[in-house]
Simulated scan of single mutants.
Amino acid sequence: MFFYVSKIAWLVATPSTFLTLLIVAGLALSLFWRRVGMTLVTLGAVGLLLLGLGPFGRIMLVPLEARFPTFADDGRRVDGIIVLGGAELPGVSAARRQPSFQESAERILAMGELARRYPEARVVFAGGSGLMRKQAAQEADVVRLALPQIGLAEERVEFEDTSRNTAENARLAKELIKPLPGENWLLVTSAFHMPRAVGCFRAVGFPVTAYPVDFRTTGDPGYFHLFGSVSEGLSFFELALREWVGLAVYYLTGRIDSLPPGPLTDQPAGGSPSR
């Protein structure tokens, strides 16, 4: 139920959709109540321009991306690598019969690079589908198609292919992996998504080491730097807003235990908690 409620709520709350509906509603109301209608039209249009051209998306993304440092190999043994889904385009992949990815494809590139760097480590991909409607292919199916392109044999990778969100990624990955105490597992996902992902893994009792990829900002919020187009700025803002809302909802529903999760106090930069 949580999965479907969250998806439906976001469909309506997406800023670009909400503000566009506000403009349409305002135009309709202006036929009968001109002042009320034009007020709604103005609010919607100004909102689109402010969120689309203003730096708000960057400002919200920077602290998420800075929450966990870039991974630095401290010499500890790496027992396994977990890569979260979300970069794949299953529908396009099935239609075109070749693996297709969106802008988070660095997750898959990192999987290939880490598998070669740590040849003794287990490699696990966690991801089924984050869509409400059933698709011809799952995220895991797309990754299987892409393995030859990143130089990995399919037998090297274990797949958890039924999870639909980050909380399920963590729970089902733990059930598949059955990690032993003291093992060091790298978690690969987008930098902005890392706080929620690490929080979910901690909540199910599976400590992981953050390996953030897919950075969207330089680290500079650029308070006085406008986006080049409304669509670009809205994309940044909606990405950041969705992640912050997700963090809040996960915290309130007990899926993470802090807001936002960050490195443990006894955890060195890029490493695991000291023992």
Rank of each mutant, 00 (worst) to 15 (best):
L64E: 03
G151Y: 12
G37W: 05
S258E: 15
P260R: 11
V249Y: 01
M1D: 06
E113M: 14
R133C: 00
A105S: 15
M38H: 08
V41T: 10
M38L: 15
F192C: 07
L19C: 06
S6T: 05
Q149V: 09
G182P: 12
E232H: 11
L234A: 06
Q135N: 01
W185Y: 04
S163R: 03
L176E: 01
F237M: 07
D73I: 02
A95R: 13
V5P: 00
S30D: 09
E139K: 00
L172G: 01
S100F: 03
E88A: 15
P99D: 01
S190L: 04
I59A: 06
R107N: 12
A115G: 14
W185V: 05
P148W: 13
R116P: 08
L43N: 00
R116N: 10
V157E: 10
G246E: 04
T189G: 03
G199Q: 09
L176A: 02
L19G: 00
L131V: 07
F18W: 15
R216N: 07
E154P: 02
L29W: 09
G130M: 00
F101Q: 08
G270I: 06
E175W: 04
G205T: 10
A45K: 06
R97N: 15
P63N: 10
L152Y: 07
L50K: 00
G127A: 02
V208C: 12
T20N: 09
S129W: 02
G57K: 04
V213Y: 11
R144Y: 01
D79G: 11
M1C: 10
A140N: 10
T209C: 14
F125S: 05
S104R: 13
A126E: 01
P261S: 12
N169A: 05
T265Y: 07
L27G: 13
T218V: 07
L40R: 04
G228W: 04
G199F: 04
L241Q: 05
H225A: 11
D141Y: 04
C200E: 07
F101W: 11
A94T: 08
V230I: 14
G75W: 10
V123L: 04
A197N: 08
P207Y: 11
P195N: 10
A126Q: 02
M194H: 13
L252N: 08
A269R: 14
D73E: 10
K134M: 08
T20S: 15
E103K: 13
S129A: 06
R171M: 12
V249A: 14
A25Y: 03
H225W: 05
W244T: 12
L40I: 07
Q138A: 13
G44I: 05
L61D: 01
L11H: 13
R35H: 04
R116D: 11
N169M: 05
F56K: 01
F192V: 05
G128R: 08
